[in-house]
């Protein structure tokens, strides 16, 4: 199975950001905070929010195709449980194989399950970002801090200079 990343953009200027929300508490806010940073400081274009049907399994094919069609890069969050950490990593791999640079965000308690899923999907060593656990119980200010902390890693995985 294919284990090469999609081509990286040189800059985010004008690129449409797909935010794939897996429905977990605070996922929307975390994604929107990251997108806001990418727009304000890196010139990224429109951010479009999409919602998964169920967090525990990979994104449905139709939604995947729609996002690939409409967006230049994707950020997906938040894999802060057993099934959804694995599914978030599987989603990232599926987007990369469809040619869209993607940052999967799990929480750092679920590195092992994310890595195990990458192996199941034939992409061992797939790079994703593990945000500090927890996420679900945080306040709005704390989510903003998590987003700011994530930013350098998001840019690194997207292959863009910070």
């Amino acid at each position: 199975m294919d284990s090469t990343l999609s081509p990286r953009p040189v800059s985010l200027r004008g690129l449409t950001i797909g935010l794939l929300d897996n429905t977990k508490p605070n996922a929307t806010m975390l994604l929107e905070e990251i997108a806001k940073e990418l727009q304000e400081h890196h010139g990224a274009g429109e951010a479009r929010l999409y919602t998964k049907e169920y967090f525990g399994t990979p994104v449905a094919e139709r939604l995947l195709e729609q996002i690939v069609d409409e967006c230049d890069i994707v950020i997906t969050a938040v894999g802060d449980c057993g099934s959804c950490s694995a599914a978030t990593v599987a989603d990232g791999i599926m987007f990369e194989r469809a040619g869209v640079p993607t940052v999967s965000i799990t929480s750092d308690s679920f590195l092992m399950s994310g890595q195990a899923m990458a192996t199941v999907q034939g992409f061992p060593g797939f790079d994703f970002y593990a945000v500090q656990h927890p996420v679900a119980s945080l306040s709005a200010d704390e989510i903003r801090e998590r987003a700011l902390t994530a930013l350098p890693e998001v840019l690194r995985i997207l292959g863009v200079e910070g």
Partner: peptide, 15 residues
């Protein structure tokens, strides 16, 4: 409830 997962949480929670 949280908006999307409909998990129980506090009415003070941002979601």
């Amino acid at each position: 409830l949280s908006h999307k997962t409909r998990w129980r949480l506090s009415s003070d929670h941002p979601d």
